[in-house]
Design a protein around this nucleic acid. Sequence first.
DNA 1: CAGCTACCTTGATTCACATCAAGGTGATTC
DNA 2: GAATCACCTTGATGTGAATCAAGGTAGCTG
Lengths: 251, 251
Amino acid sequence: MTIHIAQSGDAALKPCTHDYQVNCGNCRLNSICLPLALESDDIQQLDDIIQRSKPLQKSQHLYREGDDFQSVFAVRSGTLKAYKTTDDGREQVTGFYFPGEILGMDGISNNSHASSAKALETAAICEIPFTSLEKLSALMPNLQRHFFQLMSREITEDQQLITLLSKNSADERVAALMLSISGRNARRKLSATQFRLPMSRVDIGNYLGLTVETVSRVFSRMQKMDILQVDNKEIKILDADGLRAMANLSG
Amino acid sequence: MTIHIAQSGDAALKPCTHDYQVNCGNCRLNSICLPLALESDDIQQLDDIIQRSKPLQKSQHLYREGDDFQSVFAVRSGTLKAYKTTDDGREQVTGFYFPGEILGMDGISNNSHASSAKALETAAICEIPFTSLEKLSALMPNLQRHFFQLMSREITEDQQLITLLSKNSADERVAALMLSISGRNARRKLSATQFRLPMSRVDIGNYLGLTVETVSRVFSRMQKMDILQVDNKEIKILDADGLRAMANLSG
DNA sequence: CAGCTACCTTGATTCACATCAAGGTGATTC
DNA sequence: GAATCACCTTGATGTGAATCAAGGTAGCTG
């Protein structure tokens, strides 16, 4: 049903020359994405190894667990989820990826992707072939440093999620996710208080270790407390302090 | 009470020249540690940047959350735990580190350690100054590659833990941890079936998102089922298949 | 626009693990 | 060798979220 387009021979991800061509130099995400901290000369070199391609349609896969690892990917627009499937068929969502964020780094260790990545809505992706990135990193200390930092950030974020899952209640988990999404929107100069959730309640539950029903109940509760206005996927934060109090985060 | 010895001016971690001097070339862990995949020439260069020091005593800190990040560390002997403290004072253990394993990589992203690391028993540590490692990585493609892989492995392991916390029962979590420790012992050519746990039940609970009581009950249950023989911290795996069945892992 | 499908919400019941409570064991200290 | 402390075990009770169940809503499709 969904088309697997990360295979090398597949048409969908082949470089193409349509009007959605962008380069790192003029991309408005370059201050939060991989080019961060690079000189414009260096950005040009990075840009040369990056492959852009036809957008991914909703529910198409960027890669699947077990695929050969060739590249890491930057989100240019849209949202993706990364997830693993347990062998009893259940799904663990390990992360959501918004524009400017990098995914696929979990494939480096075994030269094979440790999770699958799927578009939650139409998404434009920059593909960064890893061997080229390695070579370039050896030449550009800033790039090497920055990529180490990106991987390290992934680690600290996973640790935050571990803490959240292990120590926090359903209310706290959902509140923390709303704050995270709000913060990531703000980083992209979008509204921190009003946004559309790209993922379903099921995905939220799978990410936070909760069932759909519980997620739904938490949203209802937040609505009743006038912390959030929830209209299906449209979210409006009415009381940011209340939301932070509810999240009760650790740091 | 515990002495904080990661500070630069402190005596405890200063390089010293006692009989516990080892180098990467003759270290019996070099096939699973950072030198993996390096030529002996390269190992020598790596060795030159590594600082060895007086062992850490039980419950001493290697670094604390918020400390300036300077180095990553390799465990030469003993065991450490990494943990974060939530601001309501509770502790989340994010990992246990056995000989040959690298810790501290979560500090790269912010130039400040994102967690604390504490010795669970006397432990010998190799300190690897990160700026030196970066420079060396730029010169040695194999080292760069290997360090990327180590970070990526940390990510995939964190994702496994996320899945474990989010989807598995208390029995499954404890069984999975026993299998993990068993496997890591085997990798160091130690017994996969009989070992001494270096950590307390409280630490196990904090790692697995369970209370001490629950951990204790799981051990009792496993003992009753003749899967494990448990004598305080001495563990003997009696039925490895049974243990794997109990862990019911995803992959 | 009727009918389907995917997704979301709400309520009733159940259950796995937390919490509360008490006692046991072994190591260290004076 | 009595006392203290840190750690572990076991039992009784409580509770937050899962599960089971049913109905609602919105977007597609023919």
